[in-house]
Design a binder for these strands. Structure first.
Lengths: 174, 174
DNA sequence: CTATTTTGCTTCGACTTCGAAGCAAAGTAC
DNA sequence: GTACTTTGCTTCGAAGTCGAAGCAAAATAG
């Protein structure tokens, strides 16, 4: 199991630089998400997921189908149904059957939804500025955007790792 | 409230470059987490959280208190208790009261825990390589590590935003 | 030494999330 | 047209997650 060569391209481990980047990335984003969540809950009574849904709707002329909403939000379909239910109950969106396709549900943001989004957005931006953008130079920002865009596109274009890879174990902890 | 100047340092919005970086960052990490989760579940029957806990223990001479475990993992205390319970039930860790401080719980990774961690790690590394590292040049990696380390440290050193900022609304959706 | 506060962890209930299963409309094959 | 598959969404049950409340040990105050 323990590799022997110290070079980083071997199949065994990650070199310190790779580890640093990976860990820092995951932890920083985790922290950021947590802070963002706190702000949105305190200032608008909504979760990050709900904010993202409202943002997508606000940016898309106010209307999207569930499937369109699902794309771009990393999220399960059933979770989306659940959140849409909450948002509808809160009067922030409306759901209706599509005319083109009886299966599709068209989600529409309401005036209240737009208002809430508008109310919360400035604070959200401030949080992002304060926590993420503040310590970055112009070069950093350019690099970060470039890098993460590339990574995201790369991941989106990945083949789904084939059907059933294999399952060696069944539930040691869970 | 709506700003007028198109420059990016205004208090109102984020310029396209900032938005790109922010969105790409959040989405890429979300996708990565999801893939990592899939792999760990399929190959070792554990969640990412559980993997992180085992990793921390494995890297810390096998022993840590609950509080030490909590630091570094972005996670609630009660969630940690729950996961520790699962890991203990699965025989991957052991919990005992500290000798120094009767309140503290010392968590120890078992041989089975180490074995499982060792079994899962190579695949985990491959996933990270394939999805995150593959599209990055040496410069990218250096930049990413540098940037995210700075962001993480910045966030860790932030004052906790004072006690109770304010609560404008109470639960529009939720 | 006793009272108070802090610290470390767990328990509890409410909510969120996920994947599997289900259902009906739309598309495809024949 | 009828059978089959695919697509779009929801329902359901099993976990996982969180914050508040609770409890006991330790630190601090007096």
């Amino acid at each position: 199991m323990t590799g022997s060569s110290p070079d980083s391209s071997a199949s065994d481990g990650l070199d310190p630089q790779q580890l640093d980047a990976y860990f820092a990335l995951m932890e920083a984003v985790g922290l950021l998400e947590h802070q963002v969540e706190q702000h949105l809950r305190a200032d608008g009574g909504i979760s990050y997921v709900q904010f993202q849904l409202l943002a997508r709707l606000a940016g898309a002329n106010g209307q999207l189908t569930m499937t369109q909403l699902a794309d771009g939000v990393v999220y399960s379909r059933s979770g989306l149904t659940y959140q849409a239910g909450l948002l509808e109950k809160a009067g922030l969106i409306t759901r209706g059957t599509s005319a083109d396709d009886e299966r599709s549900t068209v989600v529409t943001i309401t005036d209240a939804g737009l208002a809430l989004f508008g109310q919360v957005l400035p604070g959200h931006v401030q949080v992002v500025r304060r926590l993420l953008l503040a310590p970055l130079s112009a070069d950093d920002l350019r690099n970060l955007g470039d890098i993460m865009t590339r990574v995201r596109d790369h991941m989106r274009n990945e083949p789904p790792r084939s059907a059933a890879p294999r399952k060696r174990r069944v539930n040691p902890a869970g």
